[in-house]
Design a protein around this nucleic acid. Structure first.
Lengths: 197, 197
DNA sequence: GTCTATAGCTGGATAGAC
DNA sequence: GTCTATCCAGCTATAGAC
């Protein structure tokens, strides 16, 4: 039985969309209000700490959405290579439409705030580590050794973030697709190293 | 015989530093003036088109600096793996100091402006393609076939950009160093594929 | 080439009525 | 819970003196 969407949730969803597209500094509270159609006076009721609080919750929401999607795509394939190839190619399609809505997960907001907003920076660090852990868990399930899985988990996180930047700049998903091919090779190579141990 | 630094150059250097650290939207013209110590009235004399013009030139300056550094590090090694390992580990040291100055090359400004400032987006696209081409050229010199070199050139660009985001968020260069190890494996693997053709 | 002053706007945030 | 009114600081940009 779903609760109907609260005003708070509506504000948060609009804010998340805008932060992903325009970043933290590029998005104003007025714009969030306008976009969401939420009652103008209600922002500081729902988010007493203002913009920073909204951003922290937006990052957590992005975390949830990305992890759900990733789990769904990565489980139940025949190999790690196949799983990540499927996942990354899926992400790529998002960037093919002209005004892609879901942008760069949290890479943009992380790099904007890393040197200026410690709270946001720290939250982003935790989220990145969750991404890494998910990737590492998946790799372990497909037979990778723990240590190598962790290093690869970080590397895959970096590859995805970087390829998303290229894809949003090039206005299409091809960078992600090309990267996916190389990632497949990297995973197969790592696999061989595991097996010859 | 070097020309002494013009006011214009001083403004541009400060702006570049600030854009790298805080992004386009996070950096104000007042701040650029203050930081540079340049004459306050001179911004619109030297950059008649205002902030956007400064950003375009800053991106071009970043391009120049990155390409110079990359060329220096990548030439004259024994293999592609060795060359890129050296280069990436060099970049990593930048992120170990607490308030790293040279931040994320152009990834931040590119993702901020991709959907809102077409001129800047286009310039960033060209710069990313220059990075890719440099990587590809280097790979070809170390014996990689053209097509594979191009795909790897893009992938390496993505890996570096992504790992820089992680490094600035984690406040140290370890993500870049871990990524470098995996990049070495990827390059060795590709090499083998070339050789068995 | 440089500088001041200021226009004109938008930002985040607050107080207080309802 | 919602909304209006408003404060003040910051922004980009321009006009015009020197």
């Amino acid at each position: 039985m779903k609760k109907k969407q609260s005003t708070r949730d509506i504000i948060l969803q609009s804010a998340t969309r805008l932060f992903q597209r325009q970043g933290y500094n590029g998005t104003g509270l007025n714009q969030i209000i306008e976009e969401s159609g939420a009652p103008k006076g209600s922002i500081y009721y729902h988010f007493p700490n203002g913009k920073e609080e909204i951003a922290l919750e937006a990052v957590s929401l992005m975390r949830k959405l990305v992890l759900e999607e990733a789990e769904k795509d990565l489980r139940g394939k025949n190999s790690a290579a196949e799983a990540f190839e499927f996942y990354v190619n899926n992400v790529a399609t998002v960037f093919d439409t002209r005004d892609c809505v879901e942008g760069l997960s949290i890479g943009l907001i992380a790099s904007e705030t890393a040197l200026t907003h410690e709270n946001i920076r720290y939250t982003c660090e935790m989220v990145f580590k969750d991404f890494q852990s998910l990737h590492a868990d998946i790799l372990e399930q497909y037979g990778f050794k723990k240590e190598r899985a962790e290093e690869l988990g970080l590397t895959i996180t970096a590859m995805i973030e970087g390829a998303c930047i290229l894809s949003i700049t090039y206005q299409n998903g091809n960078p992600l697709r090309i990267m996916a091919k190389q990632l497949v090779l990297l995973l197969k190579n790592n696999r061989e190293i595991e097996e010859t141990k």
